[in-house]
């Protein structure tokens, strides 16, 4: 699957996206994978204690749909790590 990064996640990842192969992953497994592949995200984007995203960062499927913790992300999916603090 292709994980797309926006805002702070993109800075810490050092790239606009990341390819993750293999089996389908739950959101928690995906967060763990991102923490391994992009350790700079830990703290600012990923909370290692809860294995979740630091508010206001969020994972949206195709930039559109929120998912449950146990919903799988599979090969054709494009989860997006976004921040949703707006304004300006």
């Amino acid at each position: 699957m292709t994980v797309e990064f926006f805002g702070m996640a993109r800075i810490f990842a050092g790239a606009p996206s990341l390819e993750i192969g293999g089996e389908c992953l739950t959101k928690r497994e995906l967060v763990r994978e991102l923490a391994v592949r992009c350790p700079a995200m830990i703290g600012s984007v990923i909370d290692p204690a809860t294995e979740a995203f630091v508010n206001p960062n969020l994972l949206l499927l195709d930039g559109r749909r929120a998912t449950g913790d146990d919903d799988p992300f599979c090969a054709a999916d494009r989860p997006c790590v976004l921040f949703l603090a707006s304004g300006g």
């Binding site: 600012s44 997006c80 976004l82 300006g88």
Partner: peptide
């Protein structure tokens, strides 16, 4: 801390890519 990192490091202009991706 991280709750305002977007504003400190990127500014509100960073909304552009996000909103475009979200349609």
């Amino acid at each position: 801390g991280p709750k305002t990192a977007k504003y400190r490091i990127l500014g509100t202009g960073a909304n552009m890519r996000v909103l475009e991706r979200m349609g």
